[in-house]
Every structure is written in C-alpha cells, then in structure tokens.
C-alpha cells in the first residue's frame, strides 16, 4: 500500500503558498495580511486557501514547528520490527502514545520507524518501555549523536 498524492489539483497560487510559506511567517498583528501581500493575494484568499490545503491534507499543519530539545526535552528516532499479521495493531499501540510525533512504515526488517518527542530526557526511556510492554517487541533507539544538516523545505512538484 503506497501513499499517493491526494486527489486534489494544486493551483499555481497554492504552489506559491507552499514555496514561500514554509517558514518566516510574520509575528505581528495581521500576519496573514502581511504574508498575503508578499504573495500578491488578499488576506481572505490566503486564509481560505490555507483552510483548503489543510482540509485536503496537502498540509499536515500550519503553525510553529518546535525543537523540543531547546525546551529541555528530547527527540529520538526509534524503530521496531512488527510482524506483518499484527502490523496495524502494533501501529495503533505505538501511535496511541502522545509522545510519538511521527511514525512511518518503511521497507526493511525494522519496518516501523517513529520519532519520540518528550518534555524531559527521561520521558524517552519511559515511552520506549511502555511501547515494549504494550507490543511485546524490542524497540531500537537511534538518538542523534551529531546533526550535520536539517532543512525540511520541499517545494510542490506536481
């Protein structure tokens, strides 16, 4: 089961929104008006297009992206090998934890890769222990030791 692009045609203006609005959203009284002006749109039109992009799941969110480590918390990539016959059940058990920020199915013996974001460093071990208990499967943690680059801004290419 491969993820597919949503059944929704992106207008040129939506592509422009995606290209220009993945960061630097202003902090001021009328930020949508300021951003809209930079895009050559009216404030109402930008708000309406953002609503539609969110409803159509082209955007997963519009707002601040946090770095939990900078608040004293922790952010750790982890993986497990879920048996095919119980894959969805294991995914539900893992996703049930609010500490699981993202979770992806990947093609490998380790077929479930998720990111834990917790308010305290100790929260990571607690979340892993909980997942191991709930699923009965060993969890492999891959905390970052060095960050060489992070800049997740991809433009629409449809």
């Amino acid at each position: 089961m491969r993820e597919r692009p949503v059944d929704f045609e992106l207008a040129a203006v939506d592509r422009k929104i995606l290209a220009k609005l993945q960061g630097d959203f202003p902090i001021c009284e009328r930020p949508y008006a300021v951003a809209a002006e930079q895009l050559g749109l009216a404030e109402d039109e930008l708000l309406e297009r953002l609503r539609r992009l969110l409803d159509n799941k082209v955007l997963t969110r519009f707002g601040p992206m946090f770095q939990v480590e900078q608040m004293g918390g922790a952010f750790v990539l982890a993986a497990l090998a879920a048996p095919e016959e119980s894959y969805d059940e294991v995914a539900a058990q893992v996703n049930a934890l609010p500490q699981v920020a993202h979770n992806y199915r990947r093609e490998h013996a380790l077929n479930m890769w998720f990111v834990l974001a917790t308010e305290t460093p100790a929260g990571i071990a607690e979340a892993i222990a909980r997942i191991e208990r709930d699923t009965g499967l060993p969890v492999y943690a891959f905390p970052k030791e060095r960050e060489y680059f992070v800049e997740m801004k991809l433009e629409a290419r449809l």
Partner: peptide
C-alpha cells in the same frame, strides 16, 4: 531556537514527493 520556524508543514506525498 525553541521554535525552528513558523509556517506550512506539507504532506510530502501530497505535493509530489512520492
């Protein structure tokens, strides 16, 4: 640095990065 950035978070698949 608590906020890395403020803006749109796209679903990669939906914007053509399949």
């Amino acid at each position: 640095g608590v906020i890395r950035r403020i803006g749109a978070v796209p679903n990669h698949y939906a914007i053509g990065w399949t």
